[in-house]
């Protein structure tokens, strides 16, 4: 996908910039963007390091067994052909829990570990398996209970009531997640 979109984005931007006389801004943005990407990664580094370490402890204790039990019925619905004792199943469970708790920086490493496990069982190494699609979809669904980033943003802009958006966020998230899961289930069944 990005093999197509990425060059298109860049090429049409350059053509448009030349035609509209914005080429100076575009030139400047090269340095800004690359800088931002590195700064963003460095910001990510500390939290990812910390939460990967903490989650490693969690995975090695009985917490994971308890949470596995709680999420088992849901996992069975979402990943019907995945063995509950599989390592991928545990990583996916932790990934979902981290997402729900709003630990985005912890969720990503766990999700990436899970997809690497799923890849071992994947028969077509260059194509996403059904389980991988469901995992990615769950991670694009923003399943968090507390939208921490937005709350801190609203707080920093001196909102009278920063938390009043939480309930509508829940409603919109649930609608989006249910729509995504339903359409994925249908398309998997159709063999697409």
């Amino acid at each position: 996908m990005l093999n197509v979109l990425w060059p298109i984005f860049i090429i049409i931007s350059i053509i448009y910039a030349i035609l509209s006389g914005n080429i100076e801004n575009v030139n400047k943005s090269i340095f800004d963007s690359v800088d931002n990407a590195v700064k963003f990664s460095i910001n990510l580094l500390g939290m990812t390091c910390l939460w990967s370490g903490l989650m490693e402890i969690a995975v090695n204790t009985n917490i994971i067994r308890f949470l596995n039990k709680v999420l088992k019925p849901i996992m069975k619905k979402l990943f019907p052909d995945l063995e509950p004792e599989n390592k991928a199943s545990k990583d996916i469970t932790m990934n979902i829990i981290a997402n729900i708790l709003g630990l985005g920086n912890a969720a990503t490493p766990l999700g990436l570990k899970a997809i690497e496990e799923l890849q071992k069982e994947n028969n077509h190494k260059e194509t996403l398996s059904d389980n991988m699609i469901m995992l990615i979809l769950l991670n694009t669904a923003s399943l968090q209970i507390i939208p921490t980033t937005v709350l801190s943003l609203r707080n920093s802009l001196q909102s009278d009531n920063p938390t009043e958006i939480i309930f509508p966020v829940w409603v919109a998230t649930i609608c989006a997640a249910l729509a995504g899961i339903t359409i994925t289930k249908i398309l998997i069944k159709k063999g697409m």
């Binding site: 990425w6 910039a17 963007s33 963003f40 990664s41 990812t48 990967s52 490493p109």
Partner: peptide, 29 residues
């Protein structure tokens, strides 16, 4: 676990650079 965390960030850094760069072009053009 923390070492694994560092590896993951370095793995996604090239993706980030590529995407930030393309989005910067889209916005600034």
């Amino acid at each position: 676990g923390a070492v694994e965390g560092i590896e993951i960030v370095f793995k996604i850094l090239p993706t980030l650079v590529g995407l930030f760069f393309a989005i910067g072009f889209l916005r600034n053009s």
